[in-house]
């Protein structure tokens, strides 16, 4: 593809949104636009990354993110290799440092890492010469998810600045929320957070967002609502009385969505719990962009692999 040299990619790794400038973000999204178009063609494969290898190292269960990266790599003609925790040496007690060194010795061009430990991607990146793309580390960051969410919203809204997004649910344990808050506020979006206080991160009052106890208040006048998956173990950890009460108070229903601006969109990073954080009819409604997010995910990850693997210097 033609590439504007003035807008070149300078990062070895993608670890966290906070490393990116607005210019970097727009370069990613514009590059993704190009790949989105390729993905709509009958023949979706381009030879751009032929002969390059990408390791998909998923130490934590994942279906959609891993598949998305796999498809993205293959559409660009890169060779993709999967390494899961089960069946790997990690399960035999190998340390992450040794896994990193072993992978390094195989000379991949990029490693995509998903890991339950906060900072795992940074840990790998500091020890590896190849590009490291963070596909989610603990509760810390999930930059590719935030980028595909931003891509989806830009596609739906046209303009980002001045729009209002409400993120609903378990913010405290969510890397998706952390990365989205940083990215969307960088792009001028007003972000509201809503959930029970037991699921709000400590110090949230220092974040560039508004925080709401009541869903109705948080959703009113919003241009989009993003529901987060509620992990069922939060109840066992003593953070919630029970899931029935959670659903009654925080589930995004069509009645609550009706309080948002006309045409407000609904997002969810998946996998969804129908009837818990999102009502079944809302998930299937025309406002729902859940499947657009999946399509955007492939395009954004193609853009990221392309930018990292064709970087100069």
């Amino acid at each position: 593809m033609q590439h504007d040299t003035a807008r070149s990619w300078r990062h070895k790794d993608l670890l966290d949104i906070c490393q990116l400038s607005l210019e970097d973000v727009l370069l990613i999204l514009d590059t993704a636009d190009y790949f989105q178009e390729i993905n709509s063609r009958p023949t979706k494969k381009v030879p751009t990354l032929k002969g390059r290898s990408v390791v998909l190292f998923f130490a934590e269960p994942s279906t959609r993110t891993k598949t998305s990266f796999d498809v993205a790599g293959k559409r660009l003609s890169a060779d993709t290799f999967s390494l899961a925790k089960s069946g790997s040496s990690l399960q035999k007690g190998e340390s992450l440092k040794d896994t990193a060194l072993t992978l390094q010795a195989m000379r991949p061009d990029a490693i995509v890492i998903r890991h339950e430990q906060n900072g795992a991607a940074e840990f790998m990146a500091s020890r590896l010469e190849c590009a490291v793309i963070n596909a989610g580390d603990g509760r810390h960051a999930h930059p590719t998810q935030a980028l595909l969410d931003a891509y989806t919203l830009r596609e739906q809204w046209g303009m980002m600045a001045g729009k209002t997004l409400c993120i609903l649910g378990d913010i405290a344990h969510s890397r998706v929320a952390r990365s989205n808050v940083i990215l969307l506020t960088l792009m001028g979006v007003n972000v509201r957070l809503c959930g029970p206080r037991t699921l709000m991160p400590y110090g949230v009052e220092t974040w560039p967002v508004t925080v709401h106890d009541r869903v109705e208040e948080a959703v009113e006048g919003a241009d989009a609502v993003m529901c987060l998956r509620l992990q069922l173990e939060r109840q066992q950890a003593g953070l919630l009385p029970d899931l029935r009460e959670y659903a009654a108070r925080y589930c995004l229903t069509s009645a609550r969505l009706a309080l948002a601006n006309a045409g407000a969109r609904v997002l969810h990073p998946g996998p969804i719990n129908r009837g818990l954080e999102i009502a079944a009819d809302v998930a299937d409604a025309p406002e729902s962009c859940i499947l657009d997010q999946v399509a955007a995910g492939v395009a954004v990850r193609m853009a990221l692999l392309f930018l990292h693997l064709t970087r100069k210097g």
């Binding site: 906060n118 900072g119 509760r139 960051a141 405290a172 890397r175 400590y202 110090g203």
Partner: peptide
């Protein structure tokens, strides 16, 4: 420590 810094990092803190 439990703080805004460590919560941003995704870490559970000791208040």
């Amino acid at each position: 420590n439990e703080s805004a810094l460590t919560a941003r990092m995704g870490l559970k803190g000791q208040p």
